[in-house]
Design a protein around this nucleic acid. Structure first.
Lengths: 237, 237, 237, 237
DNA sequence: GATGAATGAGTGTTCATTCAT
DNA sequence: TATGAATGAACACTCATTCAT
């Protein structure tokens, strides 16, 4: 029998992670590479965590700065505004997402196996980069209306285009799988979103633990992929 | 062949609903029952829509008031604070959720059929009450730290307990189904969250259309429930 | 013999007026009409004085608020931003300026007398509305580059157009005067600006005194107009 | 007939000079003498231009640095603070002003001719050193209250004394001219300020042109001096 | 001599909340 | 009941200044 310690029983329960901001006493993030060259990365990491925890609107730049053990000035030295910081977080999340499924997508395997590779990589990625993914997801579903900076819409459009491109990689595999008889779902768009939703789901309940191993994560990912495949009506599980 | 117009191709794309706030010119919500008795309900509806669109922290009480074609005074007449308003929205969403699956849960059907009834009702409910459900979901995953009102934690705890109770209704059915051989999933908690996630998923991509019928929604729900059942490894689809 | 007490001997000396902001202890402006209807006017008056004293960039909205014995909120209740407040001050100054010379300009007198009427009214106006005129003048010669609000340039263009229209009223009289032989200046544009400069000059050295009478101001104005007329080479002084 | 291209028709219009800061793309000042010995002078020149364009409070040290094609470090290498930089600009402007009228004042000519010499030199000086003069003028009429550096008031007092001394040189000539019958003005202080205002006026509307010659400037100056003399009621023009 | 990084005090702006009417 | 005015705390953002290199 397998146990899954890292699963917290929540669709609901507030996620309590080691990242949690406790307004006053806080252990700043620590980085192996503290060189200035790495500074913008540190800012992004801190921002991603804050945005995950409180959302974009609910996060203060002071919160982010406190996460770094620094002051707002450091943030503004690298990013011109809060929204630009958000864009950078979003961009990095997207880049990571593409990179994760690239290899699987480029493989010459039949649709079912190709899907498994991509889905597994994506599911693992969601856990490995939870803060960035939460921030990304949040920003996708929220209008940030106060953001009137010139070019904001253009940036969002480009970003939505990227998103679409990402989905299309899965869409293509699903179509091929249906054509080859490997999958038996009904409506493509619904199946697509359902599958991605399953693979994404851990960002809302996964919580890393001190004693956790890579194997634990792999097992969770594997189980999610199993369910996704079954949901698609995969003929050979 | 069936077509599903209301599905928008997004995990990603910003949801464009008829509710969208357009900062300046805005068609206030209209209610059949404009009696004072109904007033608090109007406030809740407007709040739910705003919270859905911009999140709790991103919404202004002026936004909410504007949605009603009124000013903040009306809100404060019925709710003592912004967070109390959020609590009320949350509570209503929870009440609706319980009511929706009640009948299915109380039926004496075998687990698979019982699940189908509950799941279908829940999936339809997500579409019917999208603003409330989005607001609920959002508040579940976001710390609202600035909310220092006394008793806030107690309220949240009670609310989290409710949430757990809701999940437990599905959990029970899943356990019974596994015991009876109707379902063949691996880890209960993961299967539970995955299934709920599937049923919830439409809140992020569903967008009602002018010419949409109830039948359209029922078909979407049905397809989602199909996938959920398959994901559970249902033996008799 | 006439004495001119209100004249302070400065091109240079910092103007010390009863308006001076003394950061901490300050007598707020008092208004005969304290009705809310008059509130925006009070804000404008306070702003004009602050802008006169410290310039636009050097004035804090807290300064302005302190002048009113209020807080920034009051300002933002009536004006959306600091720059919009400045625009309002500017507009009011311009309106006053036009109103002041209107009657003289519309009269059917010969150029020299018409000029005298207009110039006298303008010179008196400069003293009566010193804060507004200083704020106006300052804003004319300073780029407020940080002001990126949409439409800023359009507003400034309109305003510059108004300014031009104001000058043109004097320009017309000067041209007519030259044609009729009443004036004997050389270059129109230089004469025009010189004359307006003379009439404006008091905004930088005039300082009202407690015991001052209208007659005092009229004498100053009269003397300035005399010099302006002579500068124009008026044939009949 | 003479034309005066460099005159722009403004009491009002925003001055558009070759100096204008265009936030991003900017041609830094160029100096014939780029030796370190000349460095402080470059800083002063850049500062004068910025202060002219945006005022002291509205100018950033980054603006000044950008004008030099350098960073703030260079400024701080030569000046201890922003206000010290302003003082230096002011001082240089004053020194130039004294130097300009010195010869005329020391001459042994009768009052009218002596005035003409001084006035002409001053008027030319205003055009030649427009940025310094604008910065000076601005600082004379603006309280820079945030400037709490110790000794600030002492410095300003000394500076105001200098200003007074400068005015007194003209005052003396005017008095002598009135006594001798060469001038026929009414009140000394008003005449004095009016005349200086006339001579200064070009700093707000003069704008150098590429094809401009020294002769052009001399004509403008001459015309201004003519008007000043007539304003004084000079008996022999 | 000069730079880039970082800071902290301040400044414009927002917004939940109160209150007189 | 509902509104408009007003407040104050908090927040995004700026900028003079310092400092290690």
């Amino acid at each position: 029998m397998t146990t899954y310690p890292p699963v917290c029983f929540c669709w609901v329960s507030l996620v309590k992670t080691k990242f949690r901001t406790d307004a006053n006493k806080l252990v700043p993030l620590t980085f192996a590479d503290k060189s200035p060259r790495n500074a913008p990365q540190q800012v992004l990491d801190a921002a991603a965590i804050c945005f995950m925890e409180k959302g974009y609107a609910g996060s203060t730049l002071d919160d982010v700065a406190r996460h770094m053990g620094a002051t707002k000035g450091r943030i503004y030295h690298y990013f011109n505004s809060k929204s630009e910081l958000m864009h950078a977080v979003r961009k990095r999340a997207m880049d990571i997402n593409f990179a994760a499924i690239r290899d699987g997508f480029d493989s010459n395997l039949p649709p079912a196996q190709k899907f498994r590779l991509m889905a597994d990589a994506h599911a693992l990625n969601m856990m490995a980069e939870q803060p960035y993914q939460r921030a990304l997801f949040d920003s996708l579903h929220t209008h940030m209306t106060r953001d009137k900076a010139a070019g904001h819409d253009a940036i969002m459009d480009e970003f939505i285009g990227d998103r679409r491109a990402f989905e299309d990689m899965f869409r293509e595999v699903l179509e091929q799988g249906k054509a080859s008889g490997a999958f038996r779902f009904k409506t493509l768009s619904i199946a697509l979103h359902t599958v991605i939703t399953i693979l994404n789901s851990s960002i809302y309940w996964y919580s890393p633990r001190p004693d956790e191993t890579d194997k634990d994560r792999r097992q969770i990912a594997s189980e999610l992929v199993d369910m996704a495949q079954r949901a698609l009506g995969a003929t050979t599980p």
